[in-house]
Each structure stands twice: as structure tokens, then as C-alpha cells.
């Protein structure tokens, strides 16, 4: 009896069941929304969630704080902008080169800073993020400075994907906005799948052990420095890809994509949604993208209300939204 119930629970909250549910919700979303504005929000949620899923591997699972992750997002976006407009690379080639470049960059900066612990690691990642934002602001010839820089539309297999376009597929007509949403949703699903695979592997176990007990990990044969660096690079590449896509989607970026505030927003998504909960951080991303929409009613009080919500959630649900809710449901069921 007890076993049967455990089995049932397993299927319900098994990560891959969650992935199926996520794909289903994303696929059915177009039935619920009608206008371009809604699609725009959905696309932004998917891209933000992609960064958060990657960051969660680093912060939630491996327990290494990064307060500068927007730097990698910004680096991806700017690398795509510069490679496409100044070096005439095709957007997909630029995106992949940017991801590779950002991965190498993360590897280089990660090596010296990832042996830091606790608040010193927070400080170092924060510092890297602030420096990146200042560089983007000041290197005007390359980045356009505070005014920002434009990007061409994304092109896939020779077809341009513009938010203003209209496309025919198998007799159906899609707007560019709809296709962008589908693309972002597909990227998110793939990002989640890869993350779930990592977590459910020897690599994932080693990463979680870094969080649980670094000493246990070491004596069990885990080269902790190497694994910290690995997950740092993986999460940076996630951010870079999402940044590149966002750049092509919005067609224009400014240094705010790499700002300290954006880094804080990203870590907030992870902690608010639930550390070490891949689906929790997707909910976190949705909330942080949507909240400004609901708060426009408060107008001048927007910041006050947002700050208050943030504090309240973290005080009353310190483990984050999804894990806390699941825990309560579980307790209720028993």
C-alpha cells in the first residue's frame, strides 16, 4: 500500500513528468492568449526562464552564488550584435560563437574566483558583473555605449524570423510574434531537458554534493574545483544563448542587459521560485516578468509593492515558492 502510493507520487512529481507537463502547457498557451502583447510576455518569460534554469544549476544545485550572471547574458547578446553587424556572421553562427566565447570567458574568470567561499564569492561575481556593465557602457565604438546597439532579425536555415513578418507553414499562417514564442518555448524545453539530464547523472550528484558537503565530495573522489568550474561554464553558456536570442528578438539592446540590477533579478528568480527546483525557477521567471505588468496599477508605488512582496515571500517561504507549496501539499496528503 505504502509502496503503491510512493510509486504514484513518483510519476506525478518525477522530473520528466514535469517536463511533459511543461511542454503541454507551453503548447496549449496559444489557445489562452490572443494578442501580440501576450506573446511578447510569454517569449520573454521563456528566455528569462532559460537563463534561470542554467543559473539554478550553479546556485540551487551546486550551492555557488553568482551575483553577476547578467554579465554572461549581456556578453552573449553583445557578442551576437557585434558579430552579426560588424563581422557579417549569420545570426546562428554568431549565437554559437558567442556561446563558445562566453564559455571560454567563464572558464577563465571562474578559475581564480571559484575557490572563494560564501560572501567572498558573492563579492567577486558581483564585481565581475559590475565591471562588465561598465565596459559595455564605455567602449562606445564596439558597443554603442549607453545608447545601445541594434541586431538584425534571427535567421533559421536561410529564413529570416522577424517579429513583424508573416509566415506560411502547411497551409497555416503564423505571425512572427507567434513563431518567436514557439521558438523560445522550444529552447526552454530543451534547456530544461538538458538540465534534468545533468541533475540525474553522476555529474549532477557531484554538483549537489558540492552544496551538501564539499568534504564528502572530495573524499568521494570529486575534484571540487573542476566541477565548480564546469557548472559555472554551463550556466554561463545558458545565459549567453538566451542573451543572444533576446537580442535578436528585441532587435536592440543596451548595457542594462548586463547591469547589476539584472543580475539581482536573475538570482531573485532562482531563490524566489525555489533553489534546486528546475520547475520552481520557471515559475519564478514568470512572476518576475509578469509582476511589473500587474504593478502598473500601483504606478508610483510599484517599487514599494515589489520590494514588500519579495521580502514577504522570502520570509514566509524561505525555500522558495514551489518547494514550499509542494511540501505543504505533501504534508496535507499525509
Amino acid at each position: 500500500m505504502k509502496e503503491a502510493r510512493a510509486m504514484k507520487k513518483n510519476i506525478l512529481i518525477s522530473p520528466y513528468g514535469g517536463l511533459l507537463l511543461l511542454a503541454l502547457i507551453l503548447a496549449l498557451m496559444p489557445l489562452a492568449v490572443s494578442n501580440d502583447f501576450h506573446y511578447d510576455l510569454l517569449t520573454k518569460i521563456c528566455l528569462t526562464a532559460t537563463v534561470a534554469v542554467g543559473l539554478n544549476l550553479l546556485v540551487g544545485y551546486a550551492g555557488q552564488v553568482s551575483l553577476g550572471h547578467a554579465a554572461f547574458y549581456g556578453a552573449g547578446a553583445y557578442a551576437s550584435a557585434i558579430l552579426t553587424s560588424q563581422y557579417n556572421l549569420s545570426p546562428m553562427v554568431a549565437l554559437l560563437s558567442a556561446a563558445a566565447g562566453v564559455g571560454v570567458m567563464a572558464w577563465l574568470v571562474g578559475r581564480p574566483i571559484l575557490h572563494l567561499k560564501g560572501h567572498y564569492l558573492s563579492m567577486a561575481t558581483l564585481g565581475l558583473g559590475v565591471i562588465a556593465a561598465i565596459v559595455l557602457n564605455n567602449e562606445e565604438q564596439l558597443t554603442g555605449g549607453p545608447d545601445g546597439v541594434g541586431l538584425p532579425p534571427l535567421s533559421l536555415f536561410g529564413h529570416e524570423l522577424s517579429v513583424f513578418g508573416e509566415y506560411q507553414f502547411a497551409g497555416l499562417t503564423f505571425t512572427g510574434v507567434e513563431l518567436w514564442y514557439l521558438l523560445a518555448a522550444a529552447v526552454l524545453v530543451i534547456a530544461v531537458l538538458l538540465a534534468l539530464n545533468i541533475i540525474d547523472s553522476p555529474l549532477g550528484r557531484a554538483l549537489r554534493a558540492l552544496h551538501g558537503s564539499e568534504i564528502a565530495a572530495q573524499v568521494a573522489g570529486v575534484d571540487t574545483a573542476k566541477y565548480k568550474l564546469r557548472v559555472f561554464v554551463i550556466s554561463a553558456v545558458y545565459a549567453s544563448v538566451a542573451g543572444s536570442l533576446y537580442g535578436h528578438y528585441s532587435g536592440f539592446i543596451t548595457p542594462t542587459v548586463a547591469s547589476f540590477e539584472h543580475s539581482i533579478e536573475l538570482i531573485t528568480i532562482v531563490v524566489l521560485g525555489g533553489m534546486a527546483s528546475t520547475f520552481g525557477v520557471i515559475i519564478g521567471a514568470a512572476i518576475l516578468v509578469l509582476i511589473p505588468q500587474f504593478l502598473t496599477d500601483f504606478q508610483e508605488l510599484e517599487m514599494v509593492v515589489f520590494g514588500a512582496i519579495l521580502m514577504a515571500v522570502m520570509i514566509f517561504l524561505p525555500r522558495g515558492l514551489l518547494p514550499s507549496v509542494l511540501q505543504r501539499l505533501q504534508r496535507g496528503a499525509q
Binding site: 550528484r205 549537489r208 552544496h211 551538501g212 558537503s213 568534504i215 564528502a216 565530495a217 573524499v219 534546486a276
Partner: peptide, 10 residues
């Protein structure tokens, strides 16, 4: 030195 964020088996 046990990883309390993991299952016993893990």
C-alpha cells in the same frame, strides 16, 4: 560528512 540535500542512496 553527509550530503543532507540528497537521498541516502545518492
Amino acid at each position: 560528512q553527509i550530503c543532507m540535500n540528497m537521498s541516502a542512496l545518492e
